[in-house]
Design a protein around this nucleic acid. Structure first.
Length: 110
DNA sequence: TGCTTGACTTTAC
DNA sequence: AGTAAAGCCAAGC
């Protein structure tokens, strides 16, 4: 069981129409403070890999993280999210308050 | 083997 | 509010 396996395991559990931040994934995978590894792990996942919903992982700002090496897979990511009903704000940001994934919401209030 | 880089986050000016 | 720096760990060279 490698570190990345734990990350992928968490990412696989993100339900459609919801998103999670890198830091959140790291925390759930018992890797608090190691958010970079999450991004690095996802970097190794091929965009066409449908086994892992990599597109549901975004940064803490609610935006799709970009990198010189992505070259368009970021646009693809946005497309996939919109397809699942995730709406982007005027500045191309996702409202985490509404779409953030709540893994274990035992205390359901209101 | 050792140094640099990176799909990040948080805290501090 | 936008910018800067530090912490983290695996991969590539």
């Amino acid at each position: 069981m490698s570190t990345y396996d734990r990350i992928y395991d968490i990412v696989r559990q993100i339900p459609p129409g919801q998103v999670a931040t890198y830091g959140q994934i790291a925390e759930l995978a018992n890797l608090f403070g190691k958010a970079r590894l999450v991004g690095y792990a996802l970097y190794q996942v091929a965009p066409e890999d449908t086994d892992i919903p990599w597109h549901r992982v975004i940064n803490a700002k609610g935006e799709i993280s970009q990198s010189p090496h992505r070259n368009g897979s970021d646009a693809w990511q946005r497309s996939l999210l919109e397809q699942e009903g995730v709406q982007f704000g005027p500045d191309h940001k996702i409202n985490l308050r509404d779409y953030r994934w709540q893994p274990d919401r035992s205390v359901m209030d209101a």
